[in-house]
Structure formats: C-alpha cells, structure tokens
Simulated scan of single mutants.
Amino acid sequence: MTTELAQVKVRRKGVWAAAITLGVLALAVLVVPPIVQLDQQLVDLRSAGLAPSLAHPLGTDEMGRDVLLRSLYGLRVSFMVGLVAALVSMVIGGLIGLAAGSLGGLPDRLLMRVVDGFSALPHLLLGIFIVAMFAPSPYAVIVSVGVTHWTTAARIVRSEVLSLRERPFVEAAVSGGASRARVVRRHLLPHLAPHLLLATVLMVPHAIWHETALSFLGLGLPPHLASLGNMINDGQRSLLSGDWWSSFAPGLFILVPTLAVSVLTQHWRDRLNPRTRSELSL
C-alpha cells in the first residue's frame, strides 16, 4: 500500500512538472515573439558563433542570430503547424471512422480497407512525396501531415461507434424512430468528443516531429524562416567548429514539450478510460 501511494505521488509530481513546463513554454512562445520582433533575414557576422552567455543564454548561430529567440520562434511555428495539421487529420479520420461505424456492412468494409491501405504506406515517404509537389511552406506541411496521419483517428472513432451502437440508449433511440443523422448528432458525437480531443492532442507531437523532419530535409518550411528543423540542419555545419549549442538548443525545444505533452495526455487518457490505452497509442 505504501509503495502504491509513493508511485501515485511520483506520478502526480510528474504531471505537475509537465504542466508547469508546458505552461512556461506556451507563455514564452505567446509573449516573447510579439514583444521581441525578429528579423528573419538579419545577419550579424560580428556576433557569429558566440557561446552561451548572459547576453545570449543559448549562444548565437553561424549567422550571428540569437539561438534562444530563434528557437522560441521555431517552437511557435511548430506548435501552430502541428496543431492545425492534427486538427485536419482528426477531421478526416473522424468523418471516415464515423461513416464506417454508422453505416456498417459493405461501406464499413470498403472504408476500412482504404484505412488499411494508407496505414501500410510509410508516413514520412508519403509526406515527402506530398510536400515535393508544393513550394516549401507551412500549408504544404499541414497537408502532408493531415493526409498521412488520419488512419489512427478513423480506427478510434469506428471502434467507439461500434461500441456505442450496442448501448441501450442508442438502441432505444433507433427503436423510437430516430433518424441516423439524429442518432449521430445527439448520441454518438457527444460521447466521441473526449476521445477525439485526446487523440488530437496526442497527434500534435507527431505533427511537430513530422514538420521538423521535413524541414531538416529541406522540404518543409522555407530555409530563411525560424524552424526547429531548419535550425538543426544549419547547426550541423557549426558542430565541426565546436558550436554544439546551435543544434542542441532546437533539439531540446523539440524534446521537452513533446515529453511534457506525452505525460499529460497519458494522465488524461488513464482518467478518461484505461481501456483506451492501446487504442490511442499513436
């Protein structure tokens, strides 16, 4: 009993630490860029490659730009792109899963075969193929992530719909003459909303990693924009001269918030329904 209580306390401390970390980062991302305007094209070679100091807490890159400020700008862009891309993928997957679970029969089988086909494709390679058809921009990354990451949402929604269809209140509504649209609107969607919201939050870190990978490969955001992937790519050249902070800082800004989101969503998922642990693993 004492061991279980200790584990609960440790988990609570981890949740609070993750919440505080994410809150501080969110506040910094929302407040700092509007106050400190960053000229994306500015080059100051006199300040190039400076080590971390009070003036530049995370040093400067090979162009003399402050790494901390650029990392905050990059994290802001990554969060915005990741959130919108996650919403797009949830809308696509949610509609397909809802249609499959509600219609059943042949439409269900056909739609799930489409889901299986998309799941069999490598997400990153398919994403590279999609962004290669557009000029580097946030919109191309959003389309890439939205089109390649909707399959898990479709499976989650379909599974929940099939479970809800067997509930007494749904059967009573159908027996009472309620139309399919009314059943979906009044009975299915309110129960699906928490699961979809959780799946959307879980998708955001994956969307950020996807955007970072594409930008690192030079296919995501334009090279002059502050992006975590672009910064890591640029920092590779600085590593040869010993400027480790140029790559370390953006990597840290990717790792810390995604771990914080993972801890919080794990706690949320367990409180929502422990049985969905495997279903919501993205």
Rank of each mutant, 00 (worst) to 15 (best):
V183T: 13
V183G: 06
V184W: 09
V184M: 15
V184A: 14
R185S: 14
R186K: 12
L188H: 00
L189W: 13
L189G: 03
L189N: 03
P190R: 13
H191F: 07
H191E: 14
H191P: 06
H191R: 12
L192Y: 06
L192D: 03
A193V: 15
A193R: 10
A193D: 01
H195T: 11
H195G: 09
H195P: 02
H195I: 08
L196G: 15
L196P: 01
L196W: 07
L196C: 14
L196A: 15
L197I: 13
L197W: 09
L198P: 14
L198Y: 12
A199L: 13
A199R: 04
A199S: 15
T200G: 12
V201N: 07
L202H: 14
M203Y: 10
M203S: 15
V204M: 09
V204Y: 12
V204R: 04
V204I: 15
V204D: 01
H206E: 05
A207I: 05
A207Y: 05
I208W: 11
W209I: 10
W209S: 07
H210P: 01
E211H: 10
T212M: 09
T212F: 06
T212A: 15
T212N: 08
A213V: 14
L214I: 11
L214A: 06
L214W: 07
L214E: 11
S215V: 02
S215E: 06
F216H: 05
F216C: 08
F216A: 09
F216V: 08
F216K: 08
F216W: 07
L217G: 09
L217S: 08
G218S: 04
G218E: 09
G218L: 08
L219W: 01
L219R: 03
L219P: 09
G220Y: 00
L221H: 03
L221S: 02
P222K: 05
P223Y: 00
H224A: 09
H224K: 04
L225C: 01
L225S: 06
L225A: 07
L225D: 04
A226M: 08
A226E: 07
S227N: 11
S227C: 03
S227F: 00
S227A: 13
L228V: 00
G229P: 03
G229F: 03
G229Q: 09
M231F: 00
M231T: 03
